[in-house]
């Protein structure tokens, strides 16, 4: 479903990601862990087309994301191509990024109406059932600022889901929340995972959660994938010295 092939990314002189190779199967749930500044956000942002790779290729659902083929050669993608492939990807941000000038219902219907071309009735019907699913059926007429962080994040998840992306990206979606609100958001993620319809790429510091829902854990350090494997193996018996250090540091600070 997703394929990173020899992807590198630099900001000016700073090389943030180096030679990333990563393949994710349809419906697979992959958790990305690693210390702050290791390049996790940059990795998912490239997949959301918010950041352009310096070199290498990314494929989504069999299509090149940042390139297209012209007479057998790879050329940089134009806006039209980007929009086509981008429609397969959705993302939830650390800071929710809801639209503050729209009520909750409108936050969730805006893109289905104007991007997918749904009628208002269709869009509202689906938005309401999605909002009910994340436990916010009673907040349709509220503004984002009137909601708690956990509620806002659940709206953001609903807003991404109604676009029916094949791949969902979650970038530390609980990091900005008060500890008592983390659970309600993780619960929603678990439900999406349990449905098994969506490929998920989850950047997280919630190790217990990652262990429970992920099919595979990817450990990134210093812009490289240092180790990956099933949760039992990576958490239970990490091979790499740096992974061991990272995990033990984590257990101590939590």
């Amino acid at each position: 479903m997703v394929r990173f092939h020899r992807v590198s990314k630099s900001f000016g002189d700073l090389e943030v990601l180096r030679d990333i190779n990563l393949e994710i199967a349809p419906s697979e749930i992959v958790a990305i862990i690693g210390s702050s500044g290791s390049g996790k956000t940059t990795l998912v942002r490239m997949l959301m087309t918010l950041e352009k790779p310096t070199s290498g290729t990314i494929e989504v659902d069999g299509e090149l994301l940042w390139h297209k083929k012209e007479n057998g050669r790879l050329v940089p993608a134009d806006e039209k191509h980007l929009r086509k492939v981008r429609s397969k990807v959705g993302m939830v941000f650390q800071q929710f990024n809801l639209f503050p000038h729209m009520k909750i219902l409108r936050n969730v219907t805006e893109a289905p109406i104007h991007v997918l071309g749904l009628s208002r009735e269709e869009a509202e019907q689906e938005a309401i059932s999605m909002l009910e699913k994340v436990g916010l059926g009673d907040k349709l007429d509220a503004y984002p600022s009137q909601l708690s962080g956990g509620q806002q994040q659940r709206v953001a998840i609903a807003r991404a889901l109604v676009m029916h992306p094949k791949v969902m990206l979650f970038d530390e979606v609980t990091s900005a929340l008060d500890p008592e609100l983390v659970g309600e958001v993780l619960q929603v993620l678990k439900e999406i995972a349990a449905e098994g319809k969506t490929t998920m790429l989850i950047v997280t510091h919630e190790m217990d959660f990652a262990r429970e829902v992920a099919d595979r854990i990817v450990f990134i350090d210093g812009g490289r994938i240092l180790e990956e494997g099933p949760p039992e193996q990576l958490f239970g018996n990490p091979r790499n010295q740096r992974t061991r250090e990272f995990l033990s540091r984590f257990r101590r600070t939590i």
Binding site: V89, Q95, F99, E110
Partner: peptide
């Protein structure tokens, strides 16, 4: 970040 939220929903630059 508002613009990025719009891109993530696949809105066009004009939208």
């Amino acid at each position: 970040t508002q613009i990025e939220a719009g891109i993530a929903l696949n809105m066009s630059p004009w939208q």
